[in-house]
Design a protein around this nucleic acid. Structure first.
Lengths: 196, 196, 196, 196
DNA sequence: CATGAATGAGAATTCATTCAT
DNA sequence: TATGAATGAATTCTCATTCAT
């Protein structure tokens, strides 16, 4: 008897994530996912009960670990140190998954999920925002940030948006924003300062 | 494509633009476009030779006028005055079309176009960038902006990206960024300044 | 502009009914229905929203007319005259549809219907029973039948069952029961009599 | 197919028979058969070479013993005594298998069997008819039955059909026919008598 | 020109069967 | 022998596109 093969499942998630990041949900065909993953088409269905569910799993894969690692980082360090690390963590993850999250915002409402699954889906897409909200609150408490223009939650949204800008850089043939650039841009927006 | 009924054509573009902005390309069905536009499904094909082409026309509709108006504005005014006006112009247009342009970045490579059409498509998606590049160059010449971090062209990409952030605000239940906020954010990023 | 073609719809129902009568629900493929009906596969879906629904429509096609004609017959005649006519009417209809109704009894619970559609489906499958119940009540009132063993409703079920027996005759290579045989058998079962 | 675990094989036949009687052939999934039987899905294939064959084995399981017992009964008793006993025997068996035999009449032609297997299948589905034909011949010889309307073979088909009627009673929410009712109905149909 | 009925290529999904362990 | 993971052929259903009216 074979054991259900976690490598195979991870390979499917990996390839599907790659494709979902490059293209629209509907432009990704399970035939291709199967082929690239080196599995039969039917096998996808032994691991994921539908294409929607596969999409969801690609999105949420590793999100919980990411979240707790991020919260840990926020807890253990001062805002500034944590912030730099968080940018690094987000760069790494959103380089791949950023476009998928953007996709999810548009296609999400069409997913065929049970009410429960849909709630799980929504709360998952918001975890990134929630985590960064915590971080920016800390920055505010430390007196480093200015909430005249943006609440911590809004800062978190802007934060995520900056990664989409990085994707746009790529589309327009520029190098993506590196960690230093992101730090600089975000601090310029949020830091307590006086404009001359 | 010109002699037919321009009202009908504009109505189709209007409704299709609305739908393409709200949803994924594939989640917009021509049945619905026809119904909302009050025309028969077949009629769409007398005005647009395919769904891809309709998508393209929705994107490019009014872009040329917009571009020349924007260039005029840049020419006639100082950077700061022009910049405020440009923000207003982009807010108005991208409120509707912003998500469609984001869509185009992902879906574009899949469009079934001739080489010529594809080039037209690409150059059109870049017009916004090109216009703003001109504007930011002017700001630089006037000594108001700092190109240490971003070239004028990169500034233009960031500029457009900020409108996507505004869309993200809406998704997350916040009010979209207004013109003042956009001005403030962008100037914080690009203005010559000293960070402490 | 073409009008939605009722001939085409009737042809689909006709051919599908034929196939559903010969085989299990699942052994009837829509490809074949389309081919035999001389229409494209997609056309079936312009007339019927799903295979389940097509099955339902095949079953219920003409049932209402049949029912009112049967009730009229019962009303206008004495039991015996009506009964002979009803047998003729049922022979004609159930020769084709009998096996489908048997199929429906087994597959029915698996049909993907809304609650409302399902109720309609159920009530339709029972119309034949209801009509014959009325007829047998009349026979009872006229003093011709014996309800010691069977209530009128049970008689109606037995009545329908006799047509399934006719189908079994065919399966076993015998000629189907003709109207006289059916009359004789049923009257032997239900008529007031003394067994020696 | 004999040396393996006969308990396991019988359990599979038992559960499969139950399911095949409740539902269409195609609505019975081997996954479910395996689960209910407490065996792995693959194990079904060590006992039965295909789903079709399992279906066949469910139908034919115990038929030979049943047949010889029935023939013995016919041999040892007068028609009337044997007939009552046979009804009892058929009630017991067809309560479970009746719907399956009805299914077999429709699905049979689609089974993927070798010519030899198919003949075995057909002859098995006819054993019940053959046995009862013998019984009715005896009744005829004893002068109890009337072959004006039905030959002994046809009587046998009607006999089996009555058990399907019993199943229809259940479907329509009536109690199934008991042995006395079946005896009464059948004797009314077949007994020598005079109708007024 | 305008229409919407008709179409069929293409996609997701199911499940009997195979086979590595 | 027993298992259940893996498979892909086969099926339903969708929707952009065509075309008769």
């Amino acid at each position: 008897m074979q054991r259900k093969n976690p490598d195979k499942m991870n390979k499917i998630i990996e390839m599907a994530t790659k494709l979902f990041s490059e293209r629209d949900y509907h432009d990704v065909k399970l035939d291709e996912v199967a082929r690239l993953s080196g599995v039969g088409k039917g096998s996808i269905y032994t691991y994921f009960k539908s294409k929607d569910y596969l999409f969801f799993k690609c999105l949420s894969h590793g999100v919980d670990e990411f979240t707790s690692k991020a919260l840990q980082t926020i807890k253990n360090e001062s805002f500034d140190g944590a912030f730099r690390k968080l940018i690094g963590m987000f760069v790494e993850v959103l380089e791949i998954k950023g476009p998928m999250f953007a996709s999810a915002r548009k296609h999400g409402p069409k997913l065929k999920f049970s009410a429960e699954e849909y709630n799980e889906f929504i709360s998952m897409t918001k975890q990134g925002i929630d985590v960064m909200t915590v971080a920016f609150k800390k920055g505010l408490d430390e007196g480093l940030l200015d909430d005249t223009f943006f609440s911590p939650r809004q800062m978190a949204i802007v934060f995520q948006g900056c990664f989409d800008i990085s994707t746009a850089f790529i589309f327009h043939g520029e190098r993506p924003l590196n960690e230093d650039q992101l730090y600089e841009v975000l601090m310029r927006i949020f830091k307590k300062q006086r404009l001359t």
